[in-house]
Design a protein around this nucleic acid. Structure first.
Lengths: 214, 214
DNA sequence: ACCTGAACACCGTTCAAGT
DNA sequence: ACCTGAACACCGTTCAAGT
């Protein structure tokens, strides 16, 4: 690509990620990013055809941060380690999460952690198709968990954890219409995020291992 | 709020949702929405303080479409029906999914389906805390599933389902570096979305029921 | 009191020009 | 060949003015 600037696609994507971490996706403009890198705005277009391609590149850079663990202690433990790593990396870049949801892993470095997940199941004797099915369920759960954690679905006093709609009806009224929400909702906010992630992961793994008794 | 226009917050949000369904979130501008509604751009600001509040309103309108099923056939079946309904509504508005991820349910109508989920578990004798924990895991899984389905994570030939990085390395090279991806990835694209959603849901429910043998 | 047009401070991207 | 400034066609939101 560009020759004189001394930049690379990855260098541009990394700087874009830093700006997103600081100011959010809306805070990243082609103009600001170019200024940070000391080039003209239009020079960015020699690395990425448009802003969407740049954002895809940022997503790939994040995926590449996820560890691909070696097998140790059986597939169940390897998958637990892998998915905890997924969660950790996603939580490290909360403003970038919409990009993870939108752009699937695509580059070699971005796909390495998935290869590790498949390997753990295949080596344990799980067939290719059941490996795909189990991985799919675990990946959806891990991505969904990052979403609800980052966006405060279950944070005390917000969303369903409030146990009542925001400033619309009186709490008394709500307790009558949505009594189970009023009772259980506030408990959502008291749960420990990391512990609950493991809990849900274990539920799925329990279910899977129950069907593939080894 | 505004008196002369004959509009309401909900009417504005519903029209915004229709525009998003057609053109995506980026395709929704305050100017275009106002023109659709036959009012000046600034009139919208008497219903919502800014664009973010409008998008939150769109999310609430979507949550309100999710059915809150009565108990029938036990908690397991009720939760299955509930979560299938969540998936169905989210898939009906693919362009709006980022709003669901960003804005948790907040209004009375938007929270009704959660009350139904809590009710199914509480009536089955599950304690308030375990109800919160189980619901959290199921909600994260259902949201994550909608994300990966809509964004083609597992669609044949895209993302990990391609089994190879996009136009970077030769397939031969990749089969050597990420052999499990090359073997299992393509199978992801052959799975049936609705069936796989039920599969992952059942894994979690199996795990949960195994711990709460009734 | 209620609504609005013009203006402000931004965007992403096209394109013709500069070296 | 490689890079860029100006221009184009948009944005969300502020604000002073109109009825």
């Amino acid at each position: 690509m560009a020759k004189r600037t001394g930049l690379s696609e990855d260098a541009v994507a990394q700087r874009a990620l830093a700006l997103i971490d600081a100011d959010g996706i809306e805070g990243l403009s082609m103009r600001k990013l170019a200024a940070e890198l000391g080039v003209s705005t239009m020079t960015l277009y020699s690395y990425f055809p448009d802003r969407a391609a740049l954002l895809d590149g940022v997503a790939q850079a994040i995926y590449a941060q996820i560890d691909a663990p070696e097998d140790a202690g059986g597939p169940r433990e390897t998958l637990r380690v892998l998915m905890r790593g997924v969660r950790r990396v996603l939580l490290a870049h909360p403003h970038a999460l919409p990009l993870i949801a939108e752009y699937p892993p695509r580059t070699l470095a971005a796909l390495a952690f998935i290869n590790a997940g498949f390997r753990a199941l295949r080596r344990a004797g799980v067939g290719p198709r059941d490996t795909a099915r189990a991985y799919r369920a675990l990946a959806a759960y891990s991505l969904g968990t990052a979403q609800v954690e980052i966006n405060g679905y279950f944070r005390a006093g917000e969303g369903p954890a409030a146990g009542r709609p925001e400033s619309e009806e009186s709490s008394v009224e709500v307790g009558r219409i949505l009594p189970y929400l009023a009772e259980v909702g506030p408990l959502l906010g008291e749960l420990d995020d990391a512990g609950e992630f493991d809990y849900g992961l274990d539920l799925t793994l329990d279910g899977f291992m129950g069907r593939h008794a080894t």
